[in-house]
């Protein structure tokens, strides 16, 4: 049976370090390749590397990093941040990334989704959506959650599915950083509506939250950052727990 996936997300800043990592016993915690390799050994199913420096110089270094990750790590990984056109996608896939994640660029230019799917296949095209729940609606945001749009989550998800997106990475800004669980109702609504996998993001604080994202939220994968980076939840432990709770995960 196809397993539910656990995906640590690494935000890369200053070109070579991971933001917000605080391992007590891990010397090279700031090294994105080392950290990714450690997560892979612990049983992570995929990795996401997000370039949060947007400078031109930073982008070059990020491509170098992608090459190193591809050389060292034997599980699939997605890269995102600063992807605005098809040639960015080409560059990152050539460096060895398995998938790319696009967010603001897709909202500004939905045709980019279609172009990526046509040129490289839907399976490489992850559309990331940041949305906040306000006035009884889920509103999509641009630029890492800084600029609200007039686009609603469910409409946008349906549109990008039609354009050829291979997966939706939905981050609930309402739940992000609060550590009280994922946006399970919205996740379930997306799962019922869409025919492509949904990755849950935003809100993980306890192991139970992952279980709920899979059972209540019907998510295909759950992404988290700080609970892994701060060593609050170990991936091996988490997967043992999920298996015991009846969630099919890869051990």
């Amino acid at each position: 049976m196809l397993a539910k996936r656990i995906i640590p997300c690494l935000d890369i800043k200053d070109e070579t370090t991971v933001k917000g990592v605080n391992f007590v016993n891990f010397r090279n915690a700031g090294d994105p390749v080392e950290l990714g390799a450690q997560y892979s050994r612990e049983g992570a199913d995929e990795l996401v590397y997000l370039d949060i420096t947007a400078s031109h110089e930073g982008r070059k270094t990020f491509t170098e990093l992608v090459r190193k990750v591809a050389a060292c790590i034997s599980i699939p990984f997605t890269v995102g941040g600063g992807i605005n056109e098809i040639k960015d996608v080409d560059r990152l896939l050539n460096a060895g990334a398995d998938k790319v994640s696009i967010n603001s660029a897709a909202l500004r230019n939905p045709q980019l989704v279609e172009e990526i799917a046509k040129n490289f296949g839907s399976q490489v095209c992850v559309v990331a959506i940041d949305a906040n729940y306000e006035n009884n609606n889920w509103i999509c945001y641009l630029n890492g959650g800084r600029i609200p749009t007039h686009t609603y989550l469910y409409d946008w998800a349906a549109e990008v599915e039609n354009l050829g997106a291979g997966e939706i990475l939905f981050t609930s800004m309402t739940h992000d950083g609060v550590k009280t669980g994922y946006a399970n109702e919205a996740l379930a609504a997306l799962a019922n509506q869409l025919h492509i996998p949904v990755i849950a993001s935003g809100g993980a604080g306890e192991k139970e939250h992952f279980r709920d994202a899979f059972t209540l939220g019907k998510a295909d994968a759950a992404l988290a950052a700080s609970v892994f980076h701060f060593g609050e939840i170990g991936i091996t432990d988490l997967k043992q727990y999920l298996l015991k709770e009846g969630v099919n995960v890869r051990i």
């Binding site: 049976m1 196809l2 397993a3 199913d45 997966e167 025919h195 996998p197």
Partner: peptide
């Protein structure tokens, strides 16, 4: 879902 994507 199609594609079949992930660990099996």
């Amino acid at each position: 879902k199609v594609p079949h994507m992930g660990w099996n």
